[in-house]
Amino acid sequence: MDFDYSDIVPVDLNTETPQLCQIIYSDEYKLIMGKLLSLMKQKEYSLRALNLTSLGIEQLASHYTTWIYRYDIINNLPNFDYYSELDWCEQIALDNEKNYQIWNYRQLIIEKIGFDNYDPIREYPIMEAMLDGDNKNHHVWSFRKWLVEKFNMFESEKEVEFVSNMIELDVKNNSAWCHRFFLRFNNEKNVKSEIEYVKEKIELCPQNASTWNYLIGIFEKFDLEITELKEFCFKFLNLDDDKVSSSFALETLAKIYIIEDDKESAIRMYTLLKEKYDPIRCNYWNFKISTIEN
């Protein structure tokens, strides 16, 4: 469908001179954005305006104004097909990996369709494709978290399976671990199995902050005694040989010794971190030592 835009007078796009940081726009951009912003000013909510926002987003997907205007348009169009809008969104997402406006927009559309009417599984392919391109894409993981929350997917086997697969592919993918933490601990019943799960992953790759944070995170959230982890920590160090396969095991041991009131051993752990296994944080380890001594 072709639209007639000949009656619209485009607005100025930062054309005054002299001007700091002036962008010399292409004629195409000037025309599209100039007419788009002009229609927006007149609050025209029409199919031709919608089409113009598609062209605008093709030009610059990170232009938040275009997204806001588009949302106002579809809110005012009768019998608008929100599902085809989601399809269109997906193409834009794939072409603009780092864009985040699109995910907020997608949330608005799904909200519009209504949580009771929408099947969240429909979101899986696009999220998978996006995380395939960047397995730590913060916007996509945030969106995923929103989805789980809104559609109460805490018990969804598919979701657990997905996040397990992501961890399988890269056990250092911290985004996946954070999502897992959110997913699994909506409910206390998973604590035991998750401790076993993460311990296994630590043994697979001991020098990994993501898994250790996850493990310690569980103990803190559910008020468990980390002294229970003493034996586990010793799997990753042989202090007689001065062999350490995880600096995080040293840290955890230090915390355990403090609880056990074995100050000397705690200081010994922090000193090893400071001098050999994690010297970039020497000031922090010194601080830790000073809190024990006082």
Binding site: C21, I23, I24, Y29, L60, H63, T65
Partner: peptide, 21 residues
Amino acid sequence: ALNSKYPSGFKSLDANHTWMI
């Protein structure tokens, strides 16, 4: 940078004029 004119490729900064300044 402050006083230059930028070619059309810099349109990616078009929603960031206050940020550039």
